[in-house]
Write a protein that binds this DNA or RNA. Structure first.
Lengths: 297, 297
DNA sequence: CGCAATGTTGAACTGGGTCAATTCTCGTGG
DNA sequence: CCACGAGAATTGACCCAGTTCAACATTGCG
């Protein structure tokens, strides 16, 4: 059983035992896992993170975790199930901004605001753990490593958003769907939820349309096209990517934004204490590149 | 002369005097201004911020500040001129991700990566000040207020990106252009660069197309339509919004993401020291809202 | 002055949307 | 166990916003 499967099994078990707190193996929370992808953590830091998940609660498919424009009082992590954030538009349509999987932190974008910019809803039954603004600030004060880790996570989210933006702005329906499927494939693979290119995708075609900026009708047509081209099979909520690399290529997928590691330097503790000692900081000089012909090509 | 004009005048003057360092009035840097929108700063914190701008260098229109995929070694602030970040796509087209104005910090998204996700280029002549990764980490360690401020700025960027995403995914050409113009109008107003609805917009129509996900041809047509409807006049690089509110309404502009203040609580120093004293943190319970009919409407 | 970049206008094309009819799926209750 | 009904997916016909291509006008700069 791989570590990520273990983590998920553990998360489930922990949910069962109500009232368990921090006397647990600190390795196994989905959040801790997420941070460990970025940096190493002291026990103390793990405790700080685990405290984020002290109040797990169940939520059912379709539940609204919070509404657009509601007051920002807390954030949450998701330890089971899928969720998404969305905005309702004037013409009655809806844009899904991001799909959340277990281990993700939800709502950090709202940190800087007093009202929510987007609602969040459960796609299927699951477990979320709310935590407060104050908790986040406490992390800022307690640990530079965690702060940098949080910062990195937000940056990464921004990168994903950027990628999605380019998709919606510039690419065809086939490319958009291919990109989305491939991204899900990679994200799910990391948490051990892919088997030979096959995985569960609990989104309706209408929801997919809302993710991709397409009509549900055209999502259907695009799946049909993929089936006829032998790229993707789909049955209800299960999909099989027959040729993941072809999808990646079709959609010009650049995995950097998911995989590229944070430069180790920034989490090297020795280096940090060196810095703390007050060694002066020297910026290297930056020389702008003159573009060949006055204007960028 | 308004404070923001003063700040710009100052920035220019400072650029002239090479070699001046921190023995200056700490109020006047564009960055400090930006932070002051979010929180109050101690003198010490202002110094930390001003150090970001120790190495101003000139850059000319069309200069590439850094290329896509180049190594991430530093970030920079922009104190004069406009810039944009962009991605080149496989089909030869290009997406402009964000337009930067004086006072903005450029490239923070790349914090979590070893290679750049996007290039940055100058739209017109200006001044940028590179600073290093290490400097950012030093800020994390030195000041919770600045850290939270940086975090807030990144969150805000994410909010702008989200807004842009919705625009590109869901709205018509007129809405996209109206939204962009109105956003620029607000951002420029804050730095004192708008006069009675009129401002300079140094982007070519091709660049506008790259921002808006439209062809340059259609940008031209859309401007024509706005002129005929008496909404916007444009002459070369100057535009006049004849009825800004009509544009805001047309594009369903929600200014929250630009204006909404960070809840004061998070920058209240007394409260912070209270927290430092170790008062226990209690999460309020969160109750998911059951949607009316099993599924979200 | 002349050339290159930028902007404008028209004509024809097309990807994806909309609407509507039909089928499929599955949960429910008789 | 089956019949029913509601939501989800499919398919076809038609439409339109925005693209592409091409010709032309304007601007500005060396």
């Amino acid at each position: 059983m791989c570590p990520s499967c273990l983590a998920r099994a553990y998360a489930y078990a922990r949910h069962q035992l109500t009232g368990d707190h921090l006397n647990v193996n600190l390795q196994d929370s989905a959040i801790v896992q997420q941070f460990l992808q970025h940096c190493s953590l002291s026990e103390e830091e793990k405790v700080l993170l685990l405290e984020l998940e002290q109040n797990p609660i169940k939520a059912s498919a379709g539940d609204i975790i919070w509404q657009e424009n509601s007051k920002v009082d807390q954030f949450c992590t998701i330890s089971q199930g899928w969720a998404y954030s969305f905005r309702n538009l004037g013409d009655g349509s809806r844009q899904i901004l991001k799909v959340y999987l277990p281990g993700d932190i939800i709502g950090m974008r709202d940190f800087a605001f007093s009202n929510r910019l987007a609602g969040v809803a459960m796609i299927e039954d699951g477990v979320v753990s709310p935590f407060s603004h104050e908790h986040l600030l406490r992390i800022f004060r307690s640990s530079t490593a965690l702060t940098a880790g949080l910062f990195a996570i937000v940056c990464r989210q921004q990168a994903m958003l950027t990628e999605r933006l380019i998709n919606l702005a510039r690419r065809t329906a086939q490319q958009r769907l291919a990109h989305f499927l491939y991204e899900m494939y990679l994200r799910l693979e990391r948490i051990g939820a892919v088997n030979n290119g096959r995985f569960r995708l609990p989104l309706s075609q209408e929801q997919l349309g809302d993710v991709l900026g397409l009509s549900a009708v055209h999502v259907s047509r695009t799946f049909t096209a993929f089936r006829e081209e032998g790229l993707v099979l789909r049955d209800r909520h299960r999909v099989a990517l027959l040729d993941p690399e072809a999808l990646a290529q079709l959609s010009e997928f650049d995995g950097t934004y998911l995989n590229d590691a944070v430069p180790a330097l920034f989490f090297d503790r020795e280096w940090q204490s060196h810095m703390l000692a007050g060694t002066p900081i020297k910026n290297e000089e930056m020389v702008p590149v003159k573009s060949p012909s006055a204007q960028a090509d």
